[in-house]
Design a protein around this nucleic acid. Structure first.
Length: 584
RNA sequence: CGGGCAGUAGCGCAGGGGCUAGCGCACUUGGUUCGGGACCAAGGGGUCGGCGGUUCAAAUCCGCCUUGCCCGACCA
């Protein structure tokens, strides 16, 4: 490609609002262009990188037996009504009516679509297992796009779906994806870790997320350096300490002004872990069949020294969504905020009790009377509820496996894998006849990779003060040929030769000053730069500089194509040597 | 959806009731320069986000709307 006729240009200054380095360089180098909030075009450079990433993804998905398909972005709403997600997903999914008034949606994921196809294809166990995948556009009307390609509304995703006759089959293909994802990310050059995760709106039980650890990430990951335990904070477990003692008689005491755990603990001169904190949320419960929505007050009880993890609470309460409760909603159940507990409460509410409370004795809890608390309250005797782990893990807490201190870090989710089970096959009647003659629901898994987000993370990982330096496997071109001569005829010849060698060349043939050419080359960041200028030309040489390391070598113009092919092979080999394989 | 900031040339910004709306970069033409964002000269490009109001007069003041960014809620 000749720079003189390239569609995009570089920018000297970063457009306003480009807050992180990777995003700034992608914009300035002309890889991408913003069109609206969370909506981007890929320009030639960006599109070439994306294409390379997609090709790596294809190879690895094919390697584990995936068959590429392409499902429609526009789905009839009917299939989304079958699973209930037409109702349970809110404004994030774009909806419209077609010309005759049929409800349609822009699919934000494709479980419904793929299950719709599969139920027509899979009738016998002999057809299983199967895995299909696609690389396709998704639209999710995220209320808060940010950080360039990290969090967008329209994006390209690789999503695959597996179909098995039993759990063992699902676990096998799940494990194959687990490893394939490590191969994909390492082939792209992106360091990442897999963490146990929440299944969110996908349903299902076992799930992992692939995280690129970076301060720009929005997810919090809890890790144990000692034993390797990793989990998203939303689901991270930790070892809790209990202080069991014999139950004592409940007793009401005056506690004026003690509205918070700190003030209560200091007033009574006790430790926060001897108190029981009540957190009030309202859960939204949506009927999958009718779409009817109900709300109910949720009282979450947790020991005073811990915080409630809302995601865990939502699961424990089986709610579709949570919001903080209004004061009237609390008082309507005869509880007094600041001095609240379920003791003496009335009305329709759900009580979820963290096991830290359930396994502790003689805690101080609210008396539902302004200025009063109870001493020595005990779960089971004085109040009841559903016991679950709803506590939020944080840095310094102890690892659930080995007890070592946990650490928290930030990460960007670039992929995920879910064991769905039969949620979609049952809802959409995707059954097969097994060897024993019985009809059984197909067991499904789904697996996603955010392609654009992967590029964004790579740009974040590979840059310096001058611009991008993407690895050769994902860089838009392999070689940047920079001619500094007034007359381009020699450079034209080299350009021809390199192309004849099958090398991907970006050719700097513009009439610009040397400074501009070098600055743009650094910004775009093609891994191998060939400089043709008088300095080396007098010896019949060109200068070859690696963007990644700055290492410079002179090569003779004679036979340059072969030399450059070797350089490319060396760069590629470094990446191949770094391919990571991991199995569950 | 709450809170904050902003919208003036392709990009970055200045101007804040008055006469022809500016600057840097980018762009065009001519010339000089030629290995790390060159220089000289001459040019082109704007419904000042939209609609309405106040005024003799609005980019400038007021109202509504809209778009984008940041923080939060949210996020397979």
């Amino acid at each position: 490609m000749r720079m003189s006729s390239m569609f995009s240009r570089t920018l000297r200054e970063a457009p306003a609002g480009a807050d992180c380095k990777g995003y700034e360089y992608l914009l300035r180098a002309g890889y991408i262009k913003q069109m609206g909030a969370g909506i981007f075009s890929l320009l030639p450079l960006g599109f070439r990188s994306i294409t390379k990433i997609q090709e790596i993804v294809r190879q690895e998905m094919n390697r584990i037996g995936g068959q590429e398909i392409l499902m429609p972005l526009v789905n009839p709403a009917d299939i989304w009504k079958e699973t209930g997600r037409y109702y349970s997903i809110d404004k994030e999914m774009a909806r419209f009516k077609d010309r005759v008034g049929r409800d349609m949606v822009l699919a934000m994921t494709h479980e419904e679509a793929v299950t719709d196809i599969a139920r027509g294809e899979i009738d016998s166990y002999k057809r299983l297992p199967l895995t299909v995948y696609q690389i396709q556009t998704k639209f999710r009307d995220d209320p808060r796009p940010r950080a360039g390609l990290i969090r967008v509304r329209e994006f390209t995703m690789k999503d695959s779906y597996s179909f098995d006759r039993d759990q063992a089959g699902l676990e096998k293909i799940y494990n194959e994806h687990y490893n394939a994802y490590f191969r994909i990310f390492s082939r792209c050059g992106l360091p990442c870790i897999a963490v146990a995760s929440d299944s969110g709106m996908m349903g299902g039980k076992i799930a992992h997320e692939y995280m690129y650890l970076s301060p720009i990430g929005e997810d919090t990951i809890i890790t144990c350096k000692k034993c390797g335990y990793t989990a998203n904070k939303q689901v991270a477990a930790f070892k809790k300490d209990y202080y069991p003692e014999d139950m004592k008689e409940i007793e009401k005491v005056e506690t004026p002004e003690a509205k918070t755990i700190e003030s209560l603990a200091s007033y009574l001169n006790i430790k926060p872990e001897k108190t029981c904190k009540a957190v009030f949320m309202v859960g939204g419960f949506i009927d999958d069949k009718t779409g009817e929505e109900k709300e109910k007050l949720i009282v979450a009880l947790i020991r005073g020294d811990m915080e409630v993890e809302e995601n865990k609470l939502q699961h424990a309460a089986r709610a579709n969504e949570l919001r903080p409760a209004h004061e009237e909603e609390i008082t309507a159940c005869k509880m007094v905020p600041g001095f609240a507990s379920p003791i003496g409460a009335e009305g329709d509410f759900i009580c979820i009790v963290d096991d830290s409370v359930a396994k502790s004795n003689n805690l101080v809890a609210g008396a539902n009377e302004t200025g009063y608390h109870f001493l020595n309250t005990n779960f089971g005797r004085d109040f009841q509820g559903t016991v679950a782990d709803i506590a939020s893990a944080k840095s310094g807490y102890r690892c659930p496996h080995c007890g070592a201190p946990l650490e928290a870090s930030k990460g960007v989710e670039i992929g995920n894998i879910f064991q769905l089970g039969t949620k979609y096959s049952e809802a959409m009647n995707c059954y097969f006849q097994d060897e024993d003659g019985k009809q059984k629901p197909v067991i499904m898994g789904c697996y996603g990779i955010g392609i654009g987000r992967l590029l964004a993370c790579l740009a974040e990982e590979y840059n310096d003060e001058n611009g991008l330096k993407l690895p050769i496997a994902v860089a838009p071109y392999q070689v940047h040929l920079v001619s500094l001569l007034k007359d381009n005829s020699i450079a034209d010849g080299i350009y021809e030769e390199l192309q004849n060698e099958g090398i991907e060349v970006l050719y700097e043939d513009r009439k610009e000053s040397a400074g501009v050419k070098f600055a743009d080359a650094d910004l775009i960041g093609i891994p191998i730069r060939i400089t043709l200028g008088n300095r080396s030309l007098k010896d019949g040489n060109v200068e070859v500089k690696l963007r990644g390391t700055g290492e410079t070598t002179n090569y003779s113009i004679e036979g340059l194509g072969k030399q450059i092919r070797q350089e490319i092979a060396k760069e590629q080999k470094k990446m191949d040597d770094a391919i990571i394989e991991k199995h569950l």
